[in-house]
Write a protein that binds this DNA or RNA. Structure first.
Lengths: 205, 205
DNA sequence: TGTACATCAGTGAACGCGCGTTCACTGATGTAC
DNA sequence: TGTACATCAGTGAACGCGCGTTCACTGATGTAC
């Protein structure tokens, strides 16, 4: 990111970065505006040139997270592949990949108690991300005869729930909980079973 | 709970209760030792007669939560029912029922960043609860021929993940997210699909 | 039943701390001439 | 190219606050006689 500002260069971006680092290292509670400012090499007061306050900074981190999240899932979905099934599974893999690669973002998005309606931009970004998943689910469900087709929204909610559950329970270095299986394997298997249950994968495959 | 103490009666229990109320109302961050003491009608310093400190109080709330959780799931599982399938589904329903009925406990257990190994009692309680779910999954999987049988641990991890995901994403009055379906319905349907995928429910049922 | 005593749950004051936020300021940068 | 000026990003000090924790204490309770 090129310097463009007056003194710091791009303090706004640097603040978001330190916030993400803090969240990642210390959990959602571990983030403080003052500490984020300190990490960016700046006085706490300087933050107020770029953000309305503590919450706005978290919200911006979450917003960026949803944008990246949506991009990654979109990329996975649009990657040329043999089938809608393969495309869908690729999207699911990218869910977990995102959570592991951008843990700070993930926490800001889902564990910081930020309202997704706090700003229009945040709401739009989160809807875009969830929309990708829902689209993938919708397209895949077209492989089923109409009478066996689940509502796309329910379908994607199930996938989302299982993915989120795996991330929260098994993908974190959760103190005291050790995962019985690698999270990728666990999620892949779980979604496989679920898709079989819908009739989207033959039972004996 | 009968009075049994000297001055307050049973301050220890009262403190856990106020902590749970606070967590429920204000989220995991909203809990402070001082406020919990105040709600129990007592000076913050009094807390130290009963707990090592702030974290110990949360840990005790979580421990009690796991005990209740385990009891409820056990009860659901041991309730006489037509089949292992019915018993299993009953356990799943009790998962969500617990989360809705004891939201403070649920948060203390899963969102407070308490290590489950912080004390032997907490570890035991959490293992007991998860053990019930794993047993139910194990018993149900016996309905399958051995070569199609999933490892009980993976089976129960999937159910746990989906249940937890539904709770976190759709069962909370999450600000900004509105659930597309009632969480009970969503979870019941999701688990139904999953069980079909394992071959535990006929596909056309 | 009455009294003296021991116990120990809860008090109240104090602590040092870091927090989010405010404000008048300063001084590096970009711009106009 | 050089100078004067305007801008505004970041400073530094200050604020009031509630936090978790400590400590010597006090006074209600239970107990021994």
């Amino acid at each position: 990111m090129a310097k463009r500002g007056y003194h710091h260069g791009n303090l706004r971006a640097a603040l978001v970065d330190s916030a993400l680092g803090l969240i990642e290292e210390k959990g959602p509670t571990g983030f403080t505006l003052s500490e984020a400012a300190k990490r960016a090499g700046v006085t706490p007061a300087a933050v107020y040139r770029h953000f309305g306050g503590r919450e706005d900074l978290i919200a911006e981190a979450a917003r960026q997270g949803f944008e990246i999240f949506a991009d990654l899932m979109e990329e996975a979905y649009n990657k040329p592949s043999k089938s809608t099934l393969a495309a869908f599974e690729s999207v699911c893999r990218s869910y977990l990949a995102f959570a592991k690669r951008f843990p700070g973002h993930y926490v800001a998005m889902f564990e910081s108690n930020i309202s997704l309606n706090r700003s229009a931009e945040l709401a739009a970004a989160s809807q875009r991300a969830l929309g990708v998943l829902e689209n993938a689910a919708h397209d895949l469900s077209q492989n089923l005869p109409p009478e066996k087709r689940p509502p796309a929204m329910m379908f994607s909610a199930h996938i989302w729930a299982m993915s989120h559950g795996v991330v929260e329970l098994f993908a974190r270095g959760n103190p005291g909980t050790k995962s019985p299986y690698p999270p990728e394997e666990l999620l892949e298997a779980g979604i496989g079973v679920y898709l079989r249950g819908l009739g989207l994968i033959p039972l004996d495959e």
